[in-house]
Write a protein that binds this DNA or RNA. Structure first.
Lengths: 228, 228
DNA sequence: GTAAGTTTCAAACGCTTGTTCTAAAGTCAT
DNA sequence: ATGACTTTAGAACAAGCGTTTGAAACTTAC
């Protein structure tokens, strides 16, 4: 297997324009695995399902990624870095303006990257948010180990930003409200409509991202800023 | 296998007080399966894990329930009926008072049964709410088929109640806000803290149900009633 | 053209899965 | 105690799982 450093130095291969403009093996595996992990979950997705749909050999997964666990980690890591970076960039821009930030601005700084993600199929579209919500509820090894401290800066930055935006609340109140706020935002973009447990289809099944935002922002901001 | 009708007519068996006051085979399977389905998910829970922990024979699951799928359905159905009934009973009590209901009253009418569930180990404690959130994100066959229309009364009752409590909003706005409200309430009781993706432990890990409610109600009510 | 390195491929490995089968054990009314 | 019925028990089943192997095919550099 090519090392990671070697990969970066390798010149980009020009594809035969005739038959295959499809991406290379590893990328095809990542794309298919991402979709199937979201649709069926980690355990219910077999390597044979992945390799068949990606049109690669069964052994290719273990060759390129080492194991099914490592494949999941690669799928997740491919997206989370750019996503967190996008959120932090939004925060940077806001804070550089010097003005006192509102809760709404902070909410939007998180929602905007979600929205961009939802509209960009090249970055997996809305799949990654759904993958995160699945990964969360499936309580993956990945979350308890590798990932845990690596992106803690995300929560730290938002926590201190919200503490400055909502100085009337104590640290514990802020933590609770952030928990609720991010919970509803994540699930909104992931399309987890709890009420669909009880009825066949809700209005949310349309899932126009702009529509989500339009209704989501007032709800979350009101919840965050409500007097105790 | 005993038919369902026969089961209801069978007199309750007096247990030997000496060694086994543990419940009968089917109940023990249901209890263990409920816990393991919540902990590991449906696919990652094997019948052998269940039967070993329940201290019953492997074949007992297929004998009493027919299949693993049917076992899951039984686990779910055992809880959902009483839960929905509790919510509707709260609604009945409120509406019989004749007064105009507030959004907060409606929120509490849902939260109170969640709270009662969380505090009653005999009814699975907080497990059932977690099971629902897992079932939702795992997109189970059960939800797409059997369950779907059976408890639609739940959503109907809350929808019309919220429409009366918040007459300033249109039907679509109500639907969106209910989607958000129930999303955050479910995830709060299920303990799904999205931010724990990024940091090791949040304040929520304590999970004192009364603490959840104290912070949850103001957030949800503010979100529901916020001007558009 | 040769050799070294990289990637693909088919086949097989040992293991676990849900389910089934048949016999044994237990329960209960007559 | 007999016979009908219900429940438990251990063993086995075919099928699917993640992973490994070794050779073939391809690519790249000299």
């Amino acid at each position: 297997m090519m090392s990671k450093a070697t990969q970066l130095l390798t010149p980009i291969k020009v594809q035969d324009s005739m038959e295959a403009n499809k991406p290379d093996t590893a990328t095809r595996i990542l794309d298919v695995a991402e979709r199937l992990f979201v649709e069926h979950g980690f355990e219910a997705t077999s390597l044979r399902m992945i390799t068949q749909q990606a049109e690669v050999n069964l052994a290719a997964v273990n060759y390129h990624f080492g194991s099914k666990d490592a494949l999941f980690e690669s799928v997740f890591m491919r997206r989370i870095g750019p996503f967190v970076a996008a959120c932090l960039a939004e925060l940077d821009t806001l804070e550089q303006s010097g003005q006192t930030l509102t809760a709404e601005q902070l909410v939007v700084s998180f929602i905007r990257p979600c929205l961009a993600l939802s509209k960009d199929p090249a970055r997996g579209g809305a799949l990654f948010v759904r993958l995160m919500s699945r990964t969360l509820v499936e309580n993956h090894r990945l979350l308890r180990e590798a990932l845990n401290q690596q992106y803690s800066i995300f929560v730290q930055r938002y926590t201190s930003a919200f503490q400055r935006a909502l100085p009337q609340f104590g640290a514990e109140d802020i933590a609770w409200r952030m928990h609720f706020a991010f919970s509803v935002m994540f699930n909104a973009f992931a399309g987890n409509d709890v009420l669909k447990i009880f009825v066949r289809s809700q209005v949310v099944t349309a899932r126009d991202p702009d529509m989500i935002v339009k209704h989501l922002v007032p709800f979350v901001v009101a919840g965050l800023t409500a007097p105790i």
